[in-house]
């Protein structure tokens, strides 16, 4: 599988995502440029964290119209794998590839902290190697991660198992104290109906080595590269949950 990481003007986690593949997994990965509509035949596009176009107007609102996004939208609609992390999630919402919108954090503060998220469903190549109910510890860093959607949209997401990641306490309860930004129903990540598009606010690419504070994010990278996905985004095999890497 070929992986591409998009760089927008203002992206700042593109190298982190790149390094997770290249240096931690020793897996080939390349950069894609926002001004270039050519996706270089990759099978998975990563929209990284950062502040694309300065978050002007609304986070993701300008990035959504860049040439690369026209291709990403067509790619996603034909089953291509698209993974939006933090700012990338905001871009996916603005592009309409996922439902809902982000509001300013309820605290009105930039939230930069460690969170715990629970894997609510593994029905997507990005989480195939995780256990349902598994709790992952990784950082968040955002000012607009307060996920909003109408109640009927939220119900539909829940009923179809598309709320795949939820902010929880250490014991797995998704109560308000575990919610870092005011997101409806503690939602941290959702997928589209086909499962080939994932948007999440937490940063798995910043949790891929113990020395960073956690390597829980590795489970997602292993899921992706081990899933044996074909270009259609349909998993061809299931993978076993990954063993934790030894301390660095």
């Amino acid at each position: 599988m070929r992986v591409g990481v998009v760089t927008f003007p203002g992206s700042n986690c593109d190298y982190d995502a790149y390094a997770a593949f290249r240096h931690v997994l020793d897996y080939p990965v390349e950069f894609l440029w926002h001004g270039d509509a050519d996706l270089h035949n990759v099978d998975c596009v990563i929209l990284p964290g950062g502040f694309a176009f300065g978050d002007y107007l609304r986070a993701g609102a300008i990035a959504r119209f860049s040439p690369v996004m026209r291709s990403v939208i067509a790619f996603a609609e034909t089953g291509g794998l698209v993974w939006g992390i933090c700012n990338g999630f905001q871009v996916l919402l603005e592009a309409g590839l996922l439902p809902g919108a982000m509001r300013r954090n309820a605290s009105m503060r930039f939230a930069c902290q460690w969170v715990r998220i629970k894997v609510e469903s593994t029905q997507t190549p990005f989480l195939l190697g995780c256990r349902k109910g598994q709790i992952l510890r990784m950082p968040i860093a955002h000012a607009e991660g307060n996920y909003f959607a109408d109640e009927d949209v939220l119900d539909e997401l829940e009923d179809s198992g598309r709320v795949v990641l939820r902010y929880v306490r250490a014991d797995g309860t998704p109560d308000p104290r575990a919610n870092p930004n005011g997101s409806r129903r503690n939602i941290a990540g959702i997928i589209n109906a086909q499962g080939n598009v994932l948007g999440m606010m937490p940063h798995p690419e910043r949790a891929v080595e113990r020395i960073l504070g956690s390597d829980d994010g590795l489970a997602m990278f292993h899921s992706l590269v081990g899933a044996g996905v074909v270009a259609s985004g349909v998993p061809t095999q299931t993978v076993k949950p990954v063993e934790r890497r030894a301390q660095v």
């Binding site: 609102a61 119209f65 439902p99 919108a101 509001r103 909003f148 959607a149």
Partner: peptide
């Protein structure tokens, strides 16, 4: 298309 996000 751009100035408003119809979701919110």
């Amino acid at each position: 298309k751009l100035l408003a996000n119809p979701v919110v």
